[in-house]
Design a protein around this nucleic acid. Structure first.
Lengths: 140, 140
DNA sequence: TCAACTGTTACGATGCGTAAATGTGC
DNA sequence: AGCACATTTACGCATCGTAACAGTTG
């Protein structure tokens, strides 16, 4: 699977990518600055050009955000993912990377659970506010 | 209901309060700096002393955080709440404050719903990571 | 008097928003 | 030639974390 080195006709500019994923241009550039993703290539004039792979990568990143991963954690995760997928990497390294991914998966699940609990708390908030808006005097 | 001007024997120091609510000292002080809550009083030496009311107030604030209220929004909400509860406030003002609270309640509910949707997205993440950790090559 | 707690001040990190001035692509 | 889109640089803001150093409490 030589992957054909990416079809140049399907490359997207940053605006298209940002639109599809739902992030701002600023954010996409910032992620690049932080080493989370690099455009596939650039035009001779300097415009960033992205392939589908990077769009997926950004979507992944966007999923990590709401559960509180820092950009540094995301970078580590993505690095591990890259290593785990890299056929040319040493088997030892790939195994280590897969373990890391498994750990991150666990961590992600825990964070989701934690956020769910907080959300439940915050639901009570909406109710409490509605109650107060109707004039509550409960001193409990 | 003169409220007895707060029982001095039950006043808490900032550490106790932070522990109970689950916030750092820094955060509690910062919220005060931003006008979200003031200690009931202070010792002659300058130690902040809080009554139950402020503990509840902090708990309220903590509930607003996970759904993305900014500190400014929280301050507005709390101000409205204070006005709505203030027997000495003008009836017109109190009515306006109650409407505000109702609006915030709606907003809070919407935010909860929105976050719930994002969380669902992030659940897929954990599964995807686990899959990759076992070595996936699925190209969509 | 000592340990634990608290006070203020200030600098730093994160994660972008928001210009401003300029160049690129079609 | 024009107009949308992109580039870099840079300053700003929110929300605390983290010293550092001094004072308070019991």
């Amino acid at each position: 699977m030589p992957d054909a080195d990416v079809d140049p006709s399907t490359l997207l500019q940053i605006g298209e990518v940002a639109d599809r994923v739902g992030l701002s241009l600023r954010t996409v550039r910032y992620y690049e600055e932080q080493g989370l993703l690099a455009p596939e290539t650039r035009t001779s004039g300097g415009f960033r050009l992205y392939a589908e792979e990077q769009v997926h990568r950004l979507a992944l990143i966007k999923q990590m955000k709401p559960i509180g991963f820092t950009l540094q954690e995301m970078r580590e995760l993505l690095d591990a993912r890259d290593t785990a997928r890299d056929d040319a990497a040493a088997p030892t390294a790939r195994r280590a990377a897969r373990r890391q991914l498994a750990d991150y998966a666990t961590s992600a699940a825990e964070r989701v659970a934690k956020m769910r609990r907080q959300l439940e708390q915050s639901e009570g908030l909406a109710d409490a506010l509605r109650a107060e808006s109707r004039g509550a005097e409960r001193t409990t």
